[in-house]
Design a protein around this nucleic acid. Structure first.
Length: 125
DNA sequence: ATTCTAACA
DNA sequence: TGTTAGAA
């Protein structure tokens, strides 16, 4: 199948499909005219990539995770790298969560210090 | 009609 | 990441 079809079937934009290929995540065959030719297996792989991308993982993380994933669902296989990788991702998320909470408190503070709005009468022409 | 690569705002 | 130009 061509890139446009697999794009529709896996939900990844044509742009990103080419990008992931350049990153070595997918290796579709090429037709004589140079068009990418995706197999059903490529489609399944693309669906897995979609799952990871939706989870906010980087291409590098995908490289470690993909070989451990089975089926189009995020079902994991016991690889050693996997646990470390996943724990690292959780650590990153915890850090971001902490940073966001700090920003949130800051902004909520600004809100609390804001003077009460003065009601402006609506022009009744 | 579709896709390809490369490059831009 | 989107978009676009010019070629195939």
């Amino acid at each position: 199948m061509q890139i446009g079809e697999i794009s529709q079937r896996c939900g990844i934009t044509v742009r990103m499909l080419r990008f992931y290929e350049a990153e070595g995540l997918l290796q579709p065959h090429r037709t004589g005219s140079g068009y990418r030719d995706y197999s059903e297996a490529d489609l399944e792989e693309a669906k897995r990539i979609k799952q990871l991308a939706d989870a906010g993982l980087t291409v590098e993380a995908m490289h470690d995770l993909l070989p451990c994933i089975i089926s189009p669902k995020p079902t994991f296989h016991p690889c050693d790298r996997l646990r470390a990788r996943l724990e690292g991702e959780v650590a990153k998320l915890d850090q971001r969560l902490a940073d966001m909470e700090r920003s949130r408190s800051q902004i909520v503070g600004y809100l609390a210090d804001l003077p009460v709005d003065t009601l402006v009468p609506m022009s009744q022409d």
